[in-house]
Design a protein around this nucleic acid. Structure first.
Lengths: 200, 200
DNA sequence: CATGTATTATGACGACTGGTCTACATATTT
DNA sequence: AAATATGTAGACCAGTCGTCATAATACATG
């Protein structure tokens, strides 16, 4: 039993080391060598847990990192007082993370996905699942806020897309402004529903 | 003189071959070998035109591909009847390109930028310049549409961010829907100004 | 407790590609 | 014809990913 945990931990070490490196340097830019050094595991261990090699650990990294973001979304959606408040809280969080890493740590899955889609079916599938989860959290929140069902999916997608794009631009510019600007504009968008309800 | 053109063309061949490959496979995922094969140039020629090596050709590729998109933006902004019409036209264009390439050709600069920012100062700088151009086109269009100056910059940024994020999600999902959804939501956002003007 | 079987951990090896540089051949201009 | 600009070919070593035979450990059974 103690062993089970220990091995599980080594596997996790591998995945999280990979996730961190992929996020900073990209998928192709990160060698197995780097991952092994960062996780303290040996070369063969990686192929024990991931017979599929780099592609499989890439998919696992997308799953793990994406899942962590999903958890953050869920928790924040629970705490927040509506979608606009959620956006403010999350964009603040994002900015803090970015600045703490000197704009090195962006979205933990986009870089890997852009490099490997659609060449790697496994990684693409992992990415699709993560995006679906994220949209799901947003959609739930919008519905709870009283949005008409017909507009929920598109708006949820747009919010994720906006955040994703803002994060990318913020990294390139080395500035938090794209995130603040985009969050502000998205909040304006969210108001449209408010005003429609008021008018109706 | 004939040679001048020929050499200029060989240099261009290199840049465009690099741009195309970087867009599909990413920066690290593309070897100089691939670029040379695609452009028909020889190994040493690359270092004649780009003494800075891969990093320099990466920056040149971002410049070239980004510039082409800027031109498209400008032309479309001229033709379009306001920002909303622009969004519809551009998203249609995007979807056609995506489908024609079977969702392989996404944004020509994001992948390279995510992989290299901020490690490569040259590529990051090229990316910043391109994004600034894009925001500029959007901002001009919003101003012409009568937007209050105070809201123009943030909205322009949000539009670029939304398109960028939508393009990324569309690639991963292998579907045009994220683009249509995001464009729709952004059009809703653009209406907010309309309604404010009407109310005022 | 002892023994045998899975499971897990290891690092050297090979076939290959990575980006870079040097040496040489050709073309254009002065 | 000399000098400069441009194009070509290949050598170079560090690094890539994946495979393998082997060693160490954990677990289940008699």
């Amino acid at each position: 039993m103690a062993q089970r945990q220990k091995t599980r931990q080594q596997r996790d070490n591998l995945v999280w080391a990979a996730a961190k490196l992929f996020r900073r340097q990209g998928y192709s830019g990160t060698g197995l060598r780097d991952i092994l050094a960062a996780s303290g595991a040996a070369r063969g261990s990686l192929y024990h847990y991931f017979p599929g090699g780099k592609e499989q650990i890439g998919a696992a990294a997308v799953n793990a990192a994406g899942g962590l973001v999903t958890e953050t979304f869920v928790e924040l959606a629970r705490q927040a007082d509506g979608p606009a408040d959620f956006l403010h809280r999350y964009s603040d969080l994002l900015v803090r993370w970015l600045e703490a890493s000197k704009f090195r740590d962006g979205c933990p899955i986009t870089t890997t996905l852009l490099e490997t889609t659609p060449e790697s079916a496994a990684i693409s599938a992992a990415g699709r699942a993560v995006f679906a989860d994220w949209r799901g959290v947003m959609a739930d929140m919008l519905r709870r806020d009283g949005w008409p069902a017909s507009r929920v999916p598109a708006t949820a997608t747009a919010i994720i897309a906006g955040l994703e794009g803002a994060l990318l631009m913020a990294r390139v510019q080395g500035s938090a402004r794209p995130i603040h600007d985009t969050a502000q504009a998205l909040c304006d968008l969210l108001e449209t529903n408010q005003s429609r309800q008021t008018r109706a």
